[in-house]
Design a protein around this nucleic acid. Structure first.
Length: 1067
RNA sequence: GGGCCGUUAGCUCAGUUGGCUAGAGCGCCUCCCUUACAAGGAGGAGGUCACAGGUUCGAGCCCUGUACGGCCCACCA
């Protein structure tokens, strides 16, 4: 079998080869009983709504780097993969698809039928996402793949719900919720996005019932006036006294409503309001109060015992059937029935304003720009809606309080002196939660300090059904005899007492003397498979709540549910996956879900297991497009990682991702398009869409063939152009990945060079005493790099990892070491020794890079094992012996990627010793080489023309340069004719300086040299003069001499002396 | 309204506790298809570090303010 590598790196071939090897070996399966420190990560489960984009690629690349790194360190490493059912989001995309393809709405189907359709979508995307992760090289333990709605996770959800319900931390509440009238579900506060909209202030007159005139209210939402139950005025308003006890007759509905005093009301400027407050400027001092349709009005209503009259339907149309009392409705004008009922809220607004105008009750309309909450799913304005919902009492100290106390003390503000635990039933959890970068700790803290109870019910079909049953059917009970009923109740009590169900009384219903008040009970069934309990409840006339749980309820359990919680063995056994890998080591995510997700995981894990779900939270940057906009499906600027893998390769994508994972909160990724005709990338034209976003123009002319049009993926998504069969869709890409592609190609070629040399060179054990300066230098540089990389990964600075590895490999190893040893490799006497260093360095480099670029390193590793199974530099760069299938530590899989269990074969390089002297001396050689090259270039000497070089240098540098004569000559195509203290300028030589030495370059053509000498000298002189002036200026400052550290002052003096000396020698 | 972040080369980003001439990749210019690599090699140009003050012997870095951009929270009269 040939060990020769292909001429250029072929990512697709390498990916296939590596994936096959890993797959055959099931290389990433971990067992809790494996040796090593536990190290675990749970994947932030991607939503099954869509395929992964580059944000996910970044997120998962970083997790995989951590995972592979720790696996190589010998840790018992497990990365748990999975996906999230993403309730609203998934149901919405499927509803859209069904509407587009079948022209049907969700409500045209039975619940089960529609859920099956969503399930099909989920199956499709779960596979696609898994394929994407595998193609990216993610080393997840695929045997443990989870889904937030699969049976094991469902069990965890049930158990968690039951415990919280039984402990009184889940309750039923009638509240105003953020209602999305399109998806017809309640949204959590953080699912509401605020957008500035141009609206109006309408000034409407409400007549007083005593005929003494009217008051004027100002509102942005006239349509809600149908539900007004009061008008409020500030008690400090000078007009308040005269209006005390008066009522107004609400127009259209003819409802008599009181005027109440409430200091929430902003006073207009002329009555003492703050002129800087925009509201005070526009206000009339009279606020219409609509408790059913405004959060603040609801609170005012509570304070004044006002009735709540809901005049909207769930689709936000005017309705009399959702809380408008019939006797009250009967008083309303015919106008309501003829013109308003059934109209949506915006049409109703128009019609009501028109009515007021017609009746002369409209004073004026003023434009007003204000922010309005919109649904993050449907993007329509949120309607505050009065309904029954389930809440999780996260405000309880056992949840939010515990989360706060778990914070790392140095990251928590104002926590000094407070004990880490409040004591009591829950003792202090082990360790603290620490954020990287630390600034995100504040987001977490503020959230919990201002937290409100969490609405966990959603009016959806796709999700975990709320496991609560309530009484619905009188006939079921009435038809039973007292004996039968008593027997059923006894069984219910037994189920409660054996903790199979939990009971709560409805809010407001007093627990009577009876043990159970059926009509006002909520019953939570603990176990999904408890058919007996369900049947019993059905017998008692109970039905299950139709709603499902907020997605984040199941995601919040993720670090537990993926590790088999609440399985008894998992909880009880010391060596269970749960107890070995939870707490997980780090959560790696984007900042947008610190509140949505991180918070809930922390609260749940603390509550159920009394320990953190993870120790570190690493928040990485968000990828934006070239215009600073978030990458998203709806904007159409998303990039599919598979496209990048196609254009650049998976390793290239990963390396570039690591390289851009800096400490900042955003990173921009200008997006180019790939012309499907030519494969060439080009930058699309940009236009502004109706929402003001910059998007690529939908149709591009193909650079290759103007007759052919390309539809960008941007344009397609923004709806500006529909692709047709003859319009190929361009793929998004970005030149940012060129960095990684070039790097991989370089690695491939350098490896090719090393391997071919290893084949031809004699095999020798490394013997340090035979090494040259450059050998000692590169080995020391390698160890220095490993040290830097360790520090970088510890701090989650993946950019520093990539940079350190890049600089070592390309700048030091390729540019200098490989070039410098070429002469030695041609010398049979030295080739063996040099080859042993090359082999060890290639080995070390592959291991150093493997976490970032797993495919290419695996493929090269395989070749290296064939060519040089035994390698390493004792004490300097240890490499394991490999390839014999047997060793002291166990079986050898022969994979650089696999280190599970006893297969610890290619561990992370340990930091070897440094060669300080070599690290000091070799840069001098580099300086001289660079100076000669520089001179050759400036003097325009052809690369093929040999030159003669001489150097004036003191004894020590002379010795060092002489020792490296061969390298200098080889790297500069020169003959080093003379080095020493007495060397003088040869006639016609170009003079330059390097490392404080005089360097003379003879071209053999004195006439040409004369002009070149002037050019080189002039440039060098200019540089030195500038330096000299800077240094002189510093030293002429007396304060500097007096106050700066003496060592620094001395250093400045030494530098000045050297610069001046060089300058004088240049003449 | 409250808070967080950013502004460094044409573009995308580094720049440690303040201290040598502020760096990298891409792009640009010159030369080179040298037997690992043109996805490459050698060399080069390009920055008053957003602006205004302040602290300091010394500020890209620390403090105050301003402008612009982004994000989070609160608020829909």
């Amino acid at each position: 079998m040939s060990t020769e590598l292909a001429k250029a790196f072929d990512p697709a071939a390498a990916q296939q080869q590596a994936l096959d090897l890993w797959g055959q070996a099931n290389a990433y399966h971990a067992d809790p009983s494996d040796p090593g420190q536990p190290y675990s990560i749970v994947i932030p489960p991607p939503n099954v709504t869509a395929a992964l984009h580059l944000g996910h690629a970044l997120n998962n690349t970083l997790q995989d780097i951590l995972t592979r790194y720790h696996r190589m360190l010998g840790d018992n490493t497990c990365w748990l993969p999975g996906t999230d059912h993403a309730g609203i989001a998934t149901q919405t995309v499927v509803e859209k698809r069904v509407l587009a393809e079948e022209g049907k709405r969700r409500t045209d189907f039975a619940r089960d039928e529609f859920v099956t359709k969503i399930q099909a979508w989920k199956d499709e995307y779960e596979v696609r996402i898994t394929d994407q992760l595998k193609a990216m090289g993610c080393s997840c333990d695929w045997d443990r793949q989870a889904f937030t709605m699969d049976p094991k996770r469902a069990r965890a959800v049930r158990e968690a719900f039951y415990r919280l319900f039984a402990d009184g931390l889940i309750y039923r509440g009638k509240r105003l919720v953020n209602w999305d009238p399109v998806t017809q579900t309640a949204l959590a506060d953080d699912e509401v996005e605020n957008e500035e909209v141009d609206g109006n202030f309408y000034y409407l007159r409400y007549p007083l019932t005593d005929g003494s005139g009217h008051i004027t209210v100002a509102t942005t939402r006239p349509e809600t006036m149908l539900g007004d139950t009061a008008v409020a005025i500030n008690p400090k308003d000078p007009r308040a006294a005269a209006l005390k006890g008066k009522k107004v007759l609400l127009p259209i509905v003819n409802r008599e409503i009181p005027i109440v005093e409430d200091d929430y009301v902003v006073m207009p400027v002329q009555f003492g309001g703050d002129p800087k407050d925009a509201k005070a400027v526009l206000a009339t001092g009279f606020l219409k109060v609509t408790p059913a349709h405004d959060t603040n009005d609801y609170e005012i209503g509570q304070r004044h015992n006002l009735p709540v009259i809901n005049v909207f339907s769930p689709t936000a149309g005017i309705s009399k059937d959702h809380g408008w009392p019939a006797d009250d409705f009967a008083r309303a004008d015919e106008f309501v029935t003829s013109d308003l009922l059934g109209q949506d809220r915006f049409e109703a607004r128009t019609r009501i304003v028109k009515w007021f105008k017609a009746k002369g009750l409209h004073e004026e309309t003023k434009p007003y720009r204000h922010s309005v909450g919109h649904s993050y799913r449907s993007h329509v304005p949120i309607e505050p809606y009065w309904s029954d919902q389930w809440y999780c009492r996260v405000t309880d100290d056992r949840l939010a309080g515990a989360a706060l106390r778990a914070m790392s003390p140095e990251q928590r503000e104002g926590a000094a002196g407070e004990p880490a635990s409040a004591g009591g039933a829950h003792s202090a959890p082990e360790g603290h939660l620490k954020f990287y970068p630390a600034r995100y700790a504040k987001t977490f803290q503020t959230w919990h300090e201002n937290i409100r109870d969490w609405c966990i019910s959603r009016q959806l079909w796709w999700g975990h059904r709320i496991p609560v049953w309530y009484f619905r059917d009188d006939t079921a009970v009435d038809s039973k005899s007292d004996e039968e009923l008593a027997a059923l109740l006894r069984r219910l009590v037994i189920l409660r007492d054996t903790e199979r169900v939990a009971l709560q009384h409805a809010p407001g219903a007093e627990a009577s003397g009876k043990a159970i008040d059926l009509q006002h009970s909520f019953v939570c069934v603990r176990d999904e498979s408890d058919a007996e309990a369900v049947e019993l409840l059905a017998n008692l006339g109970f039905v299950q709540d139709p709603d499902v749980l907020d997605t984040w309820f199941s995601s919040g359990l993720w670090p537990m549910s993926t590790l088999e919680w609440p399985d008894r063995l998992a909880v009880g056994l010391k060596k269970s996956a749960l107890n070995v890998w939870n707490p997980t080591s780090v959560l790696c995510t984007a900042r947008e879900i610190i509140t949505l997700w991180v918070s809930r995981m922390v609260m749940f894990n603390l509550y159920f297991l009394n320990r953190l779900p993870f120790r570190d939270v690493f928040i990485h940057a968000m990828i934006q497009d070239g215009h600073g906009q978030k990458m998203s499906k709806s904007l159409g600027n998303g990039v599919d990682p598979m496209d990048i893998i196609g254009s650049h390769g998976a390793d290239a994508m990963r390396f570039a991702m690591a390289h851009m994972a800096t400490n900042t909160q955003d990173v921009r990724m200008p997006v180019d398009l790939v012309d499907p005709h030519t494969g060439q990338a080009f930058t699309p034209k940009y236009v502004t869409d109706s929402a003001g976003h910059t998007v690529a123009a939908p149709i591009q002319e193909s650079p290759k063939d103007p007759a052919k049009k390309i539809v960008s993926s941007y344009g397609y998504a923004s709806g500006k152009a529909k692709p047709t069969a003859d319009m190929p869709v361009a793929k998004n890409t970005s030149s940012k990945f060129d960095l990684g592609r070039n790097f991989c190609n370089k690695l491939w070629n350098a490896s090719k060079f090393v391997l071919s040399n290893l084949e031809s060179a004699p095999v020798e054990a490394a013997d340090e005493t035979k090494w040259s300066l450059v050998d000692r230098w590169i080995v020391s540089r390698f160890n220095r790099t490993v040290e830097e990389v360790n520090a970088a990964i510890k701090d989650y600075r993946f950019d520093n990892y990539a940079r350190a590895a890049y600089d070592f490999f390309w700048r030091d190893f390729c540019d200098w070491y490989v070039e410098a040893v070429k002469p030695a490799m041609k010398d049979p006497a030295r080739a063996g020794q040099t080859a042993s260093v090359l082999a060890a360095l290639l080995d070390g480099t592959l291991r150093l890079l493997h976490p970032a670029t797993p495919f290419i390193t695996e493929v090269i590793w395989q070749k290296l094992n064939e060519v040089r199974p035994v390698r390493g530099l004792p004490g300097r760069l240890e490499c394991p012996s490999i390839g014999n299938g047997q060793s002291a530590v166990g079986n050898d899989s022969g994979l650089i990627a696999q280190h599970s269990g006893l297969l610890i074969r290619s561990p992370w390089p340990a930091v070897g010793s440094f060669a300080e002297a070599a690290e000091h001396i070799f840069p001098r050689v580099q300086e001289v080489v660079t100076a000669i090259r520089n001179t050759r270039n400036l003097a325009q000497i052809s690369p093929k023309q040999k030159v003669t070089v001489s150097v004036t240098a003191p004894a020590e540098p002379t010795r060092q340069l002489s020792e490296n004569r061969e390298i200098i000559e080889f790297l500069t195509a020169s003959t080093l004719s003379a080095v020493g203290p007495d060397v003088t300028a040869p006639a016609g030589a170009i003079r330059t300086t390097a490392a404080g030495l005089d360097v003379f370059v003879e071209t053999g053509q004195p006439v040409a040299s004369a002009g070149a000498d002037a050019a080189v000298n002039e440039k060098r002189r200019a540089e030195l003069t500038k330096q000299r002036d800077t240094l002189r200026g510093r030293l002429s400052n007396e304060s500097y001499i007096a106050k700066a550290p003496p060592a620094l002052v001395q250093q400045t003096r030494d530098q000045l002396a050297q610069v001046e000396a060089e300058l004088s020698r240049l003449g």
